[in-house]
């Protein structure tokens, strides 16, 4: 007996949110950026704030984030997204403002802008994608590249004695009085992606209360830069990135610091 199709509008339980555009994403197969974009878009959708949100795109792989996120956006110079977001939020304090930045943008060239925006407690959300590599320029060492990890500018592996140590900037900004909610998530499994979406939603809700900067780090993969297939890269991320960048809340409202980021590293 032929099965009766259940595909009908009343049975639809999940489709791409309208806060994403219909444009095809340019990211490499399996890259976490697409999922991270969508979790942010779903958080905006669930809160019903699409028309009150202004985002800031970085320089890096997500330089074209405004092709995909269906909200008003500004494209910032490399590393300057927190300064641009400061300018937006100061003149339009009633809007929801976020930056979406990679590790090179946020933790290398934009370190000063990141730390000072967090220290002033600017009321916006920073979404920080940490995949430990410069993806856009072809896989060079990032401020968050793990010790011993290979990249095109540390082909023998990162030697911390000459190249410096990976920067745990999320733990660093959690120390600042201006940050309100700081958490580290991932989007590589359904459970993790749902948690990341909840974190971003919470962070956007806090923005209404003017409590300070919220930072949601997403530890993510870079299959092309890491030279692995997507499934392998997610496994490698669990085994190597998570011990150094442990998932979970780092600073939560009402409790303050709940993690020192030292587990396992």
């Amino acid at each position: 007996m032929a099965e009766q199709s259940i595909i009908s509008p009343e049975n639809l339980v999940y489709k791409k949110t309208g806060v994403m555009t219909d444009r095809e994403l340019h990211y490499c197969p399996g890259c976490g950026h697409g999922t991270a974009h969508r979790m942010l878009a779903e958080a905006i959708d669930e809160l019903g704030i699409q028309s009150e949100t202004i985002g800031v795109a970085p320089v890096g792989c997500s330089v074209l984030a405004y092709y995909y996120l269906n909200v008003d956006m500004q494209e910032a110079a490399h590393g300057r997204a927190p300064a641009v977001a400061t300018g937006i939020k100061r003149v339009l304090p009633e809007k929801y403002v976020f930056t979406y930045q990679g590790d090179g943008d946020l933790a290398a060239i934009g370190t000063a802008e990141t730390i000072h925006a967090c220290n002033r407690g600017e009321n916006f959300l920073i979404v920080f994608i940490n995949n430990g590599i410069y993806g856009m320029t072809g896989g060079q060492m990032a401020p968050t590249t793990l010790p011993g990890m290979k990249s095109s500018t540390c082909p023998l592996g990162r030697d911390v004695l000459t190249m410096g140590n990976p920067l745990k900037i999320t733990e660093l900004v959690a120390q600042l009085p201006g940050t309100y909610y700081v958490t580290r998530q991932s989007v590589h499994t359904p459970g993790n992606a749902r948690k990341a979406r909840r974190a971003m939603k919470k962070a956007l809700e806090y923005q209404k209360e003017n409590k300070g900067t919220c930072v949601v780090e997403v530890v993510s993969n870079c299959p092309s830069g890491w030279k692995m297939n997507p499934v392998e890269s997610n496994k490698w991320m669990e085994e190597n990135m998570f011990p150094f960048y442990p998932l979970g809340d780092i600073k939560v409202p009402g409790k303050g610091l709940v993690s020192d980021g030292k587990n396992g590293s």
């Binding site: 500004q74 300064a83 641009v84 400061t86 300018g87 937006i88 100061r90 003149v91 802008e113």
Partner: peptide, 24 residues
């Protein structure tokens, strides 16, 4: 009018960019 002392000239001009982008 909003007045802010930025952490650098670089940050200041990018704050101008953000505010100008909002038509201010």
């Amino acid at each position: 009018m909003q007045v802010l002392q930025a952490e650098s000239e670089i940050a200041a001009i990018n704050m101008v960019y953000g505010a100008a982008g909002c038509g201010k």
